[in-house]
Design a protein around this nucleic acid. Structure first.
Lengths: 343, 343
DNA sequence: ACTAGAAGACCCGCGGGCGTG
DNA sequence: GCACGCCCGCGGGTCTTCTAG
């Protein structure tokens, strides 16, 4: 029996198996598998053939162990947030061309942010990209002492040193929405907010400031909301019960806006005829033909690209200036907004 | 200068650093970190303190390399499918108590199933749990020669050897929906199908069979649909244009049903007054108060538990009988179904 | 004398077998 | 019998060395 059997039973083939089969050294197989310089074309072909035949597959875990780099980006996200899943798609698209792998760690009912991050770190991720993290700023700062940390869509005030923030100019987005509505002729514009959700404070502030600038202070109206459809529906029911109803509503996000829309439709309140509705995020939800929601788009590919780029820059030891990267939002006008009283 | 400096600059602390700091051997630290037997309480405390101080964190990749088991379950899922993300939550809940970690690999526009699976395998996952895989059965069979494979929600005919299938009795679910509608007095019940999506064929067949059993052959009507809201909306528009409209619609899934609902609402067609709508999956979408969709529930926790259980059983070398694990669906009656003509 | 191609030693961080006091 | 240390190997990358041309 040979020292290294060609077909290792139920076990995973290794470099040694390939080497034995191809009749070369292990080191040479390593060179070939990495596509590195130092093997002749003929050998290369023999080795690749042998690897193919026994179904060899490089073991990333062993590889990482040796080379001190893992080239792994850890991403924490919420399974239930469409905005997060959209971002994850963008992160894959940005990371892989840069030569980085992505490790996903979801936040779920049975799995908090702490666990999600611990898993990523134990897995040797070189940097952490956290989508809408709700952990205390101090915790993020502590993490950042161990590994580069990028907070996406969650502003941190005061900014802890070394924690990068990539976010949309939420206040500016709210302003664009208000400007649009005012230009259409609206005056009584209400805002259904996101409570303590990441970004909510800025959107609220942006709304208030914009209303003030238009001299509409007396129409400022912030209703408690949240980030789910139910939150939006609840706030919408409050509005329905009112005598002079606002003629337009800016919701915290698209999910919230969807809840508002649906509640109005069911109550026979025409949108945008009787009331205009604006969302936030431009998730796939709002783009659907039958929702057709006017919304403030976050530039997801750009956010993903910046987040990945920032993490990589830190890893490459570039002198990255502290400070946020703020991406401009863009209002997308669709079918849920119109001049008031357009019935 | 000591052989192993206590604070390894920017590097990750290892067992050796902890050992040096605590003044014990590396092996002993290993024992303590694993909570294994063989260390005195005093030593244990000293070691843990040292580890804490320098921020030591076990390296799963090295650990995996050493112990031939990785205790890692690879999960492939679609970021855009709420049903998948719900399942992922269930898989976390089922796997972690059983002592298995979960590795997520998403299918995205820039990342096909092939890439997703390759990443999982390179990462040394011991088994693969594929949610609604669309790869050819032959490919799945090939994978199964290397590692246990569980296909969730995708039936395989003929069943390849060694590929486990965990799925809902889709035909039975469609039957329950039809029975419910017939009991309410409906006769003209249409089905918006899912094309070639996993499960679509069975739901279509279940619908046809049920209609036939009720003597409603002449009312059988299958419209081409799909798994997104837009697909549902498109089919709904087709129905709107018809003269004698069906009085009820069974949609392929909840997303599709949502599209149908919205289109009807916008057209002023009352649901369930003029037309009843039934979805499939019971995703969080349908449970929302303002959608309140009657739907066929898939037992997500059970599916997740079976999928994980099956994978683990294979890994434990249990003699698992080939064959599918079929989970019963359960109709959840909510607000979108009623007797016909209840206006 | 110089180079491409190939081989061997050793290391990464950790866990287990076996030994020692 | 308990607490602990030494040594080796998991799979693969890197550095050094050796050989043939």
């Amino acid at each position: 029996m040979p020292a290294t059997p060609e077909v290792p039973d139920g076990k995973r083939p290794t470099l040694a198996h390939v080497a034995a089969r191809a009749g070369v050294s292990v080191a040479l197989v390593s060179i070939v598998m990495r596509g590195a310089y130092g093997a002749s074309a003929a050998t290369r072909e023999r080795v690749l053939k042998a690897a193919e035949e026994i179904g060899y597959r490089p073991d990333t875990r062993a590889r990482v162990l040796r080379s001190n780099r893992s080239r792994l980006l850890g991403v924490q996200f919420g399974l239930r947030h469409p905005f997060h899943t959209d971002l994850v798609e963008g992160i894959y698209a940005a990371a892989e061309p840069a030569g980085y792998q992505v490790a996903l760690s979801a936040v779920a009912p049975t799995r908090g942010e702490r666990q999600a991050v611990e898993a990523l770190l134990a897995d040797r991720c070189e940097a952490l990209v956290l989508l809408g993290p709700e952990a205390p700023a101090a915790r993020l700062a502590h993490l950042a002492t161990q590994v580069p940390v990028v907070s996406v869509a969650r502003r941190l005030r005061p900014a802890p040193p070394a924690v990068d923030v990539v976010r949309t100019a939420d206040d500016e987005g709210a302003r664009q929405a208000v400007d649009h509505l005012v230009a259409l002729g609206h005056r009584a514009i209400a805002h259904i907010d996101g409570g303590r959700a990441p970004g909510a404070a800025d959107r609220r502030r942006g709304y208030r400031t914009a209303m003030h600038r238009h001299g509409l202070d007396e129409h400022i109206r912030v209703l408690p909301g949240g980030l789910t459809e139910d939150d939006g529906a609840r706030a919408a029911r409050t509005l329905l019960a009112e005598k002079p109803r606002p003629s337009a509503v800016l919701a915290f996000n698209d999910r919230c806006a969807t809840g508002v829309l649906d509640t109005f439709l069911r109550a026979g309140v025409a949108v945008p005829g009787e009331i205009s509705v604006v969302g936030f995020d431009d998730t796939s939800l709002s783009r659907l033909a039958h929702i057709d929601l006017t919304t403030v788009a976050q530039d997801v590919p750009r956010l993903a690209e910046l987040a990945v780029g920032r993490a990589i820059a830190r890893l490459d030891g570039e002198a990255v200036p502290d400070g946020e990267q703020v991406v401009a939002p863009r209002l997308v006008v669709r079918g849920t907004t119109a001049a008031p009283g357009t019935d």
